[in-house]
């Protein structure tokens, strides 16, 4: 049985608006992304790549100066990008939830956790305070926290890891069909981060909810997600099943990102294969990565990158395999003889 997608983004573009109301600059262009129930999709990109703007567009939380100029966002088949604010607010928390990087900022500082959790429950559903309390504590236990103590604590009495577990409980307890996790572990140390992601993937499997994991940390995306997309300068560079992207990256940017990480084990090179230039270097026309791409050709400067499809493993590069010459031959070749130097 083919499941219906939870989230379907097609051709999404977001632009900056001038005071006069005209559009000045595109920040995100032509994004296609599909998430199915129980799937975790990693969205990778550097500062300014547009990954958080994409998330905000889905959540209906774009700042006033930004707007959607093209494309559509479907949540469980319903178009949500043109809904009025009030209707969007009803969806947030209930049908889609968000976990942010800044765990302190997710809670009001001077109100106890319990109060904030029960209030969120009661805002969306008619239930008694006692019922709300029971549900909150149950979820705090599921994220492996001392429920009673956390329920009666103020946010500042909890550690970063505990707060992030609490946000996890807060977003899952409404049983949303989509969770957007925007750099949920960036502020945490590696071992705590692992525990949080373990919890998230465990609970996700149980609740069948779809997760969009936004991160600049390739390692956790490679390890955790079913599918992944790579963004640069507001465009999708590559999208596909994570295992396939890892084994056989198509876009030069993805290849270079994979190689830039120091390897955890095996041979350690004397120098890392750094990508030249700064993440802010984005071309206004043609391929956005062209200014930093060592494989760039004449055509990259003029021709816009090809669109990345949402279904299969595809890349926006005109020359899908710059190391192997012509792109069609590269696609046809088997995985074996294209063992990529990724460890």
């Amino acid at each position: 049985m083919i499941k219906n997608p939870v989230l379907q983004i097609s051709g999404l573009s977001v632009a900056l608006r001038a005071h006069s109301g005209s559009w000045i600059r595109h920040l995100v262009q032509g994004i296609n992304l599909t998430l199915y129930p129980g799937e975790m999709h990693g969205l990778v990109g550097e500062s300014g790549s547009g990954k958080s703007i994409t998330a905000s567009a889905v959540l209906g939380l774009l700042p006033g100066s930004l707007g959607i100029t093209e494309g559509e966002i479907l949540l469980n088949g319903k178009a949500i990008h043109r809904l009025p604010e009030k209707a969007k607010r009803r969806l947030r928390g209930r049908e889609m939830a968000c976990i942010f990087q800044n765990d302190q900022g997710s809670f009001a500082p001077f109100r106890k956790i319990g109060k904030q959790l029960t209030e969120a429950l009661q805002a969306h559903e008619k239930m008694s305070s006692r019922e709300a309390r029971e549900i909150s504590c149950e979820w705090l236990e599921r994220v492996k926290l001392p429920a009673q103590r956390v329920f009666d604590s103020y946010p500042f009495q909890l550690s970063g890891g505990q707060l992030q577990r609490t946000s996890l409980a807060a977003s899952l307890m409404m049983k949303p069909s989509l969770i957007i996790a925007d750099e949920p572990t960036t502020a945490l140390d590696v071992l705590t981060a692992e525990q949080i992601l373990d919890l998230l993937s465990g609970l996700q499997k149980k609740t069948e909810c779809a997760v969009l994991l936004i991160s600049h940390d390739l390692t956790s995306v490679l390890k955790r997600t079913d599918r992944m997309s790579v963004m640069y300068g507001g465009h999708l560079m590559e999208s596909g099943p994570t295992a396939s992207v890892r084994r056989n990256p198509l876009h030069p940017y993805t290849k270079m990102l994979l190689k830039a990480r120091p390897p955890l084990d095996g041979f350690m090179p004397d120098r890392l294969a750094a990508i030249p230039g700064e993440p802010g270097a984005v071309a206004d026309q043609g391929c956005p990565f062209a200014p930093r791409c060592p494989y760039r050709k004449e055509a990259c400067v003029h021709m816009p990158a090809s669109g990345v499809r949402a279904d299969d493993h595809s890349s926006a590069c005109l020359f899908a395999d710059p190391e192997g010459g012509d792109s069609i031959a590269a696609v046809a070749r088997s995985d074996q003889d294209r063992e990529v130097v990724w460890r």
């Binding site: 550097e46 600049h216 940390d217 270079m256 990102l257 990480r261 120098r271 890392l272």
Partner: peptide
């Protein structure tokens, strides 16, 4: 960012 991390690590080692 990941690509800049590699640059800085290389620089420090150098």
């Amino acid at each position: 960012d990941v690509s800049v991390q590699a640059q800085i690590l290389n620089l420090l080692k150098e």
